[in-house]
C-alpha cells in the first residue's frame, strides 16, 4: 500500500518543531507500524536525510518503550495495542497518517518523536516498591494470598509504563499509571506496611512532576495497551483519602 505520512520533526528539546510530509510506497500489510517507520527511515537515508528518531525496543508489546500518537490516538486507533504491535493491515491504501510524539509537559520532547518519560521513574522512586532487603524474605508460601487478590494485583502490575495514559488524557494526568503501580502493591499483604506512605509520596511526586488532574473521562484506560481498569484510580483515590485522614489523627 502507499501512504502519506505527516510526521513531527523537532531537532531538540528547545526547538519548537513542525510537521513534515513524506510519501511512502509499497508498504507490506504484514509489517508492523514501526517496521513501516523503518522503511521510511531507509528511504530518507537513501536521499541523505537524517532519519526520524522514535523510541522502540522489544517490538513485542511488553517493554513499553515505543510511543507515538497516531492520528490522534496514543499507540494508534486499535484497542489494547502498542505501536509496535499495530500492523499495517489496519490501514488502507492511500491513507494520510499523522504521527506525533506523546504530548505532555511532564514528557518533554528529546528529539522528533522521542520524549523523556523519566518522571514515571521518579513516581516509582517515591514509593513504588516494597522494602524487602535481599536475603531477608520468608518462604514464598509463608503468606497465602487469595487467588483473586493475586489476580487483581497482576492486572495492575501488567502496566508497561509506556505513558499512553498520559498522552491520551486531555489533561496529561498520570493517574492511571500511578494508580496501577500503587494498586499492585497495595492489594498484596506484603505491601500493607508501607501502604499509606506509598500512596501519599507517589501522589505528591506525581503532582510535582507537572502532570494534570484526573477528570474521570476514562480516555487513559481506553488507550491503555494493557487495559488497566479505572478501578485502580478509584482505589488510589480511596487509599489516598484514608491515608490523609489517618494522618490527621496521628
Amino acid at each position: 500500500m502507499n501512504l502519506t505520512l505527516k510526521v513531527w520533526r523537532q531537532s531538540g528539546p528547545k526547538d519548537s518543531g513542525q510537521f513534515e510530509t513524506h510519501l511512502i510506497e509499497e508498504v507490506s500489510e504484514d509489517s508492523s507500524f514501526l517496521e513501516m517507520m523503518d522503511q521510511l527511515n531507509e528511504q530518507l537515508l537513501e536521499n541523505g536525510i537524517e532519519p526520524i528518531a522514535f523510541d522502540h525496543d522489544c517490538r513485542e508489546g511488553i517493554c513499553g518503550m515505543c510511543s507515538l500518537t497516531i492520528n490522534g490516538f496514543a499507540h494508534g486507533p486499535e484497542d489494547s495495542t502498542t505501536t509496535c504491535q499495530l500492523h499495517m493491515r489496519k490501514f488502507n491504501d492511500g491513507d494520510i497518517i499523522t504521527i506525533e510524539p506523546f504530548r505532555a509537559r511532564a514528557f518533554p520532547v528529546v528529539r522528533d518523536l522521542v520524549v523523556d518519560r523519566s518522571s514515571f521513574d521518579k513516581i516509582i522512586q517515591a514509593g513504588g516498591f516494597i522494602s524487602a532487603r535481599t536475603g531477608s524474605a520468608p518462604d514464598g508460601n509463608a503468606i497465602p494470598i487469595p487467588k483473586e487478590d493475586a489476580d487483581k494485583a497482576m492486572d495492575a502490575a501488567a502496566c508497561i509504563g509506556c505513558g499512553a495514559c498520559v498522552a491520551s488524557c486531555k489533561n496529561a494526568s498520570a493517574m492511571l499509571f500511578t494508580s496501577a503501580k500503587a494498586g499492585h502493591l497495595n492489594l498484596l499483604p506484603q505491601g500493607q506496611a508501607e501502604k499509606d506512605a506509598r500512596v501519599l509520596n507517589m501522589v505528591k511526586t506525581m503532582d510535582e512532576s507537572g502532570f494534570g488532574n484526573c477528570r474521570n473521562y476514562g480516555e487513559c484506560s481506553a488507550a491503555c495497551p494493557k487495559d488497566i481498569s479505572l478501578d485502580y484510580i478509584a482505589k488510589l483515590n480511596r487509599d489516598h483519602a484514608k491515608a490523609k485522614i489517618k494522618n490527621l489523627f496521628s
Partner: peptide, 9 residues
C-alpha cells in the same frame, strides 16, 4: 495534538 480525538469520553 494536531488531531484531537477521543475513544471513550
Amino acid at each position: 495534538n494536531d488531531v484531537e480525538v477521543t475513544k471513550r469520553a
